[in-house]
Design a protein around this nucleic acid. Sequence first.
DNA 1: CGCGGAATTGAAAATACTCAAAATTAGTGG
DNA 2: CCACTAATTTTGAGTATTTTCAATTCCGCG
Lengths: 228, 228
Amino acid sequence: MHQLCLPMGLDDDDVNRLDQIIGRRRRIARDESLYRMGDPFQNLYAVRFGHFKTSQNNPSGEQQITGFQMAGELLGMDAISADRHHCDAVALEDSEVCEIPFPRLEELFGHIPTLLHHFHRMMSQEITREQNVMLLLGNMRAEQRFAVFLVNLSARYAARGYSASSFQLRMSREDIGNYLGLTIESVSRLLSRFKKQNLLSVDKREVTLLDPAQLKALAAGTKHCAPM
Amino acid sequence: MHQLCLPMGLDDDDVNRLDQIIGRRRRIARDESLYRMGDPFQNLYAVRFGHFKTSQNNPSGEQQITGFQMAGELLGMDAISADRHHCDAVALEDSEVCEIPFPRLEELFGHIPTLLHHFHRMMSQEITREQNVMLLLGNMRAEQRFAVFLVNLSARYAARGYSASSFQLRMSREDIGNYLGLTIESVSRLLSRFKKQNLLSVDKREVTLLDPAQLKALAAGTKHCAPM
DNA sequence: CGCGGAATTGAAAATACTCAAAATTAGTGG
DNA sequence: CCACTAATTTTGAGTATTTTCAATTCCGCG
């Protein structure tokens, strides 16, 4: 936990101070929400284990999943600006977070500049992550979007010490489609196509990347794979 | 300037301290870039006047405009995470910014908690803004995207004391299309369609919203307008 | 064993794109 | 200030990608 999240380059003393303000752990069962759009903002949340999705919901019924979060990632930064959560956060499986009371964290920033700087990096990283998604949604065809999605998951699991080539999709096809701006049918067809080209194999939600190089090329937009 | 940007609820003393760290003003001519992707990060920039676009550029040539910025808005927050700029910022017209050396700003945060909190709100606001764009790109049809774009511009000009119903598009049709994930031809057709339905009138880059209510309904997704 | 949600597959339809040409506008230099 | 050229925008026709709608299939679970 500590390795991935807020404390980097802090001395023991500072880590202690941080630990002291960190609130209780909270377990969220699959399909339960950690917070909903409009909820008053009190805490940031660090994912301890499990997976979440965050989604933006429009009054007229449109929904857009804006991200999938896994262990070590921070949830709730969108809520600072209006003191209310701006999206829904829902657990994709039984998960656990730890609460970080934001007012107390901000107090601590005054005493630990390193911590403050690291926090700014995390917010900034969220901004750049979203910019990458905007590029994906605005400029890429379905095939490339899906490849980017897979390569990104692969890299994130690798960074956590898991296999880069074999992992479980924690989200439904519908969630994937929504995130990528595609229909569930399109996602299904893409999976079949990639399977047929031996880029990957799928068993239910278990994916194995058989040709990571080719997938990366698809993601980078330097290659295309046959229409069918 | 002061009203829109960082200092809100600061006393005179604090405002002075902030003024002291604020660097020189910098003029950027039309089509010149304020910074480019990969440039080392030193300053944030507050737009004093003029307009900018920020764009995300992919090695394989894809480009996505991630936002248009106007007076009072802050540029460069995406660069904090990697100490390098993550996007290009280009002036849409002759513009002026003031430099805010980030290390000095972060120092100041230790002394002015109000300023720090306000800064966090601004970063958070950027995150929510991008989430809104993700919803637009992922879930809306061309017509709705374009309506959202117009209504958003209108609101931002209104917030600055300009007319909500009549304003100049500072960006080309191509920029609009790129931002909205559409081709230039689609944007042009949408303009023609909206014109034909008396939702707006256009003269070159000067737009007048003739039926803001209807446009807001289109933007909200509660109405549609005839295909042609 | 059978029910129900999720996923896959197929065929038809729609939206937005591509390509091409014409029209308009902006920029430049006389 | 005008004329000329280049760039941008508009418009049209045909195409492509993705969606929609519908029908199956697959699995988990009671």
